[in-house]
Write a protein that binds this DNA or RNA. Structure first.
Lengths: 152, 152
DNA sequence: GTATGTGCAAAGGCTTTGCACACGT
DNA sequence: ACGTGTGCAAAGCCTTTGCACATAC
């Protein structure tokens, strides 16, 4: 079961990386080692990562390339910027299938945990009619104590 | 009617400024001109303002005092930091009565508009039970087109 | 008179930009 | 070969900090 779940995850993240590379190709970008490394790293992460974190993790890849790649990926909507209140901006891959999650930032340990909730999504989708505007995107950030810290 | 609404607003913002000054006093802070100016400015604004914006608006008040005041006010929960994705952090007064709103950032004109929604609040308050964590605060940010820009 | 408040300037971090060189096509 | 991709270093912002002077108490 667990190996099954892992395979499933690998398949999906692999799909995202391939999807991203394909879109970049279509958009006229050439292939480059630094960009590929950033994409591969993002593919392994299911939730938000900061730019400095990516830079630190990827040896031989310059900061500039990290930021430039993130900018390009965001432009193509392959990656999404997430504002979690830290000193640096965080990014995460966008699921081609359309699923998305929101974030809980633990005020004790600093962990960022993803969560999904259908009722929340519905409430948000009801808003445009009530308030009279068009929604292109939404972001929900919770601050609180995560399960692990709450058990302390 | 309009003068009535204005009076009501003045009364409430006046209340917030007085409340803030009182809390600062209780917390052992002395009075200072710069801090008062920042408080008075925040009192006039019903939605998020950035620190550089406050600094620019208040002549004779140093940047450092703006940031220091915001830090103190946030510590006493008189002001709340809001992450709207811009280059700088935004702040807004916290309603002593407990009401709060969320934000729509217009991708066309950059305006930040406040909105409230009961169904959304309910959905958020249901989350802890489902996900198993404790919520201390939450923030919802919508990106889209505001009424004014949508009419263009 | 003493401790806090404040402004200025410098320092710190994150992010962007300029430029020369490496690499993909 | 040509144009894009990349690393390095410098520059730009926002924010924080150090320090000397002003001010509240």
């Amino acid at each position: 079961m667990d190996s099954n779940a892992t395979e499933e995850k690998d398949r999906l993240t692999g799909t995202w990386a391939e999807f991203a590379l394909g879109r970049l190709d279509t958009a006229g970008y050439r292939r480059g080692g630094s960009r590929s490394q950033v994409i591969d790293y993002l593919a392994t992460r299911d939730c938000a990562v900061t730019a400095p974190e990516i830079d630190e993790r990827l040896e031989g890849v310059g900061r500039a390339s990290v930021y430039r790649t993130l900018e390009q990926l965001e432009e193509l909507e392959l990656v999404q910027k997430v504002d979690l209140g830290g000193d640096s901006a965080a990014f995460e891959k966008v699921d081609p299938a359309g699923h998305h999650h929101h974030h809980l930032v633990c005020t004790r340990c600093g962990r960022v945990l993803p969560f999904e909730d259908e009722a929340l999504e519905e409430a948000i989708h009801e808003l445009p009619a009530k308030e009279g505007f068009t929604i292109e995107g939404h972001e929900v950030t919770l601050r609180g104590t995560c399960r692990r810290c709450g058990a302390d």
